[in-house]
Amino acid sequence: MGFIRRNWTPWEADEWRKEDWIAIVLSPLCYILLMVGTVLSILLNIWGFILLALGIFLTWLMHWVIDPKLKMISGEYEKKQHEYLEQLERNARWEEING
């Protein structure tokens, strides 16, 4: 298995792992690079093109890291969603007050 995990079991995907933290670190960095890179690129500043290209690459990398995990979480969770929605309605209508 490589440094970045691409195959997940449902139980492992539910845990907060290294891949989540990589996305958490990369995500704000992507926003900064995309925002600053876009405005400087429009002004034809060379640093703008470099920062924008880096921002696009890191955005791709972030999705590549986190997407398999998100897919697994989503797939598993949807199986239980109907039951949880019924609980939510009972709670809203005071039919199930205690946790």
């Binding site: 992507c30 926003y31 995309l34 925002m35 600053v36 876009t38 405005v39 429009i42 955005t59």
Partner: peptide, 10 residues
């Protein structure tokens, strides 16, 4: 949000 931030840059 990425769209919001890049729109601000434009």
């Amino acid at each position: 949000t990425a769209l919001v931030l890049t729109r601000n840059s434009v």
